[in-house]
Structures are given as C-alpha cells and as structure tokens.
Design a protein around this nucleic acid. Structure first.
Lengths: 215, 215
DNA sequence: GTTTAATTTAAACGAGTGTTTTAAATAGAT
DNA sequence: ATCTATTTAAAACACTCGTTTAAATTAAAC
C-alpha cells in the first residue's frame, strides 16, 4: 500500500480519541489499529508496547500544554505579584483552549485523557507525569500556595488533591454531564463553559479559611 | 468440606476488600475466590455473574448507609430549618463512621467502593445506585439546594458533580494520599480526619456566589 | 434410611488480550 | 538498478478472563 500519512500519527490520532472516550484498559490495540486502518503489529513496532503508546499519546499534549501554561503563569505573576487564586486558575484557560487549534476537540480530549490517566493505570502514569513535568507542576503549586498564604502546606496538599479530583472526575465524564445538563435544564455547555464554571468553585474551596481560624 | 461460615459471605468479604483496593475490572474472580478459599464457580452459582457480585457488594453497604444518612438529615433539618451547608455535609459524618462498626475498615472500604463505582463500570453502577437509592439521593440534594438558595438549579447540578468528583477521587486514592502526607508533612490522617478536611472545602465551593453576582 | 434438593468441585470452553515471529513489501542510498 | 534498512503484513503464541458443564459431595425432607 502507498505511503499514506505516517502510520505513527494515524495510530496516535485513533488512540487518543478512543482512550479519551472509553479509557485505556477498555480500549484494545485491535480496536485502535482497525480505526487507524493500520496493522496490529505496527503499534508494537513503533511504540514498543501499549503502555508506551499511552504515554506517547499524553506526551503529545503535555509537551505543548505544560510550557504554555508555565509561560502564562510567569507572565501573570510578573504583571501582578499578588495575583488572586482565581487569576491563577484562570491563567490556564487560554493554554487549554489553544489545544483546540492543535487538533479538533483538543481541549476536551486532553482533559479527558488527563482524567483517565489519573484514575486508571495504577500509578505508572502518575509517575510519568510527575517525573517528566514535575518542574511545571511545581511552578503551578507554588503560584497557588502564594496566592493563598493563609493555608499551611500540609492543608494545601490535601486541597490541591481535592481540586485534582474535581477536575479529573468532571472532565472524564464531561460528555455525559453536558448531555444531562442539556436534557434537564436546557442549557448547552461546551468545554469552555464547564471550565469557567469550575474555576470559582475551586478557588473558593482552596482558599476557605481553616475552621480553627474561624472559631 | 464442612459447612464453614457461609460461602456467600466469604466471597463478599474478599471481594469488597479487593474491589476497594484495586478496582473492579482489575480484580479477577480467580483472585477473589482464592482469597476467600472457595471454588471459582461458586461466584456464578451464588451471584450469577461478576456484575451482580459487584452490585451485591455495594448494596451491602448502601442498604445500611442510605437510610441512616437520610434519618440524620431529616433530624438535623427538624432541629434547624435553616441548617448551614456545612451542617448538612457534617450530618453524613456519623453514618459514615458507623460503618466501621459494621466491618473493620468499613468506612474507608465503602467510600473507596463508591469512588470505584462511579469511576469505573461505564454507567451500570451509576444506574444501579440512582434507581435503587434515588429517593435518598433526592433528599440529600434537596437539603443542599435549600441550604444554598442563591445557587440556581442548573448551577447546583454542576457543583454537586464537582463535589462528587472531589469525594470519589479523594477516597479512591485515600490510602496513597495519606501515605504521601505522612511522608512529606509528618502528619497522620485517618479517614475521619480526611472527611473533616474535605467538608469545608466542599461547602465553600458549592455555596460560592456566581461571578455575575460579584461583578 | 432413602430420596431429593442444594451446594461444592474440577475441568474445560470460548472469547479476548498484548506481544512476538517470520516473511513480504517498500523506501532510500549507492 | 542493486543493495540495504525500514516498514508493513499475516499468523500464531501464550496468557487471562468470565462463564458453563457435569460429576461428586453435602444437607435437608420425608
């Protein structure tokens, strides 16, 4: 067969779509290769294993998003050293939406992949992300911590994981939720609308004073 | 072999532990039956299928928790018709901790199972929970909604799912998180401590005024 | 105590998985 | 055009999974 557009790319494109929709372990290599119209063995030839394919799919997004997000955060903090928590979270909106220019439905796909990645795959994707993109994560965590200086580090640790849970769960089931919301309340939400809904929720939770302080 | 303590119960006990630790699809029937020291086929004999075993494991907790939680909420609202959001969420703490008297590590196991249930199993557990325990869920949703009357229903729908995400994700990975927290910050948190951390976070997020209102 | 029903056992089934192998086809370099 | 390395192709491998079957055992009923 003639050399049609890069087998490797065809695999990645088909895989990311299916992974986002159905999760990693629920997506077989046979399904991916049939959608991509390539041979089954080509996955192991080009990527070595399914595990490495999953990492490659995520890396293709993270390599674009992480530097862009880091730049945006640095820029915001240069403008305003006391940027609010809302402002820090909002900084991520543009880099997220820019992924739609990278690929169709890029933003949704990326966020769903991220959700699947943290939920499934007992730790190996967590490890991959924190070791390969740890500096970016640290930058973000610092920015959040300094925007809520009244929250001690140990408490912030928990609250950021609460936040991670909110984002990851919401995005992994975003499609189902928007459908229900449309059916029950008649309001249509695209991915940007959902992101803009979640930001105030997150910053309120992260920055709420400790109960000891209140009493 | 002599009639040792109920095969059915042995299966349920082994299954709930493994399901909570590793998730449903990552736990094979062979692993369950070997831990329970029963024959492989007895699962299908007593429960019909793996899917029905999963439901039975969850039902054993939900049948205890849901009525207890509903009673607690009704009681709190009778005492104080204007109970705060924090009070509504806190109402669930006692019924949750009471599960530790039902079985060892009952609270943690139940919350982890709930998390796995909503994350995995593309919808069939969601359906099972909402159809079998929908009245209890409705009671809770109403209590929350009336404690935050400034949040319109459509917005509340989203925020409650954000909340669900926080709880589900946190609990599904509670073991890993408490370990990290202990290693990094030297503070030990049992399941009750985590629950008490998450409540102010949740009520702050759910009740935060809409951004339109603020501007 | 015999018969009947309920339960446990061991073995196999059939379908699905990721991966490997071996050969054929294609591309690029000389 | 020939040689070499890369890529694609079809098939088989080795394994795990949930489920089913049919015989053996145990418990219950009469």
């Amino acid at each position: 067969m003639a050399n049609r557009s890069d087998t490797k790319t065809r695999i990645l494109d088909a895989a990311e779509k299916l992974f986002a929709e159905r999760g990693f372990s629920e997506t077989s290599l046979r399904l991916i290769t049939s959608k991509a119209e390539v041979n089954l063995a080509s996955v192991n030839y080009h990527f070595g294993s399914k595990k490495e394919l999953i990492r490659a799919v995520l890396a293709r997004y993270l390599d674009v998003f992480m530097p862009a997000a880091a730049d945006a955060i640095v820029a915001v903090r240069q403008e305003n050293a006391n940027a609010s928590l809302d402002a820090i979270f909002s900084t991520l909106v543009a880099p997220l939406l820019d992924l739609n220019q990278l690929r169709a439905e890029g933003t949704t796909t990326f966020l769903q992949l991220l959700g699947r990645g943290y939920i499934e795959s007992q730790g190996h994707l967590r490890w991959f992300i924190t070791t390969h993109y740890g500096e970016y994560l640290g930058l973000f965590v610092n920015a959040v911590a300094e925007s809520a200086p009244h929250i001690p580090p140990a408490e912030m640790f928990w609250r950021l994981h609460f936040t991670l849970g909110t984002v990851v769960f919401t995005m992994a089931s975003a499609d189902a939720l928007t459908e229900i919301a449309e059916a029950d309340f008649g309001e249509h939400n695209d991915i940007e609308a959902v992101i803009r809904k979640v930001i105030p929720y997150l910053s309120a939770g992260v920055s709420v004073p400790l109960t000891k302080d209140v009493i």
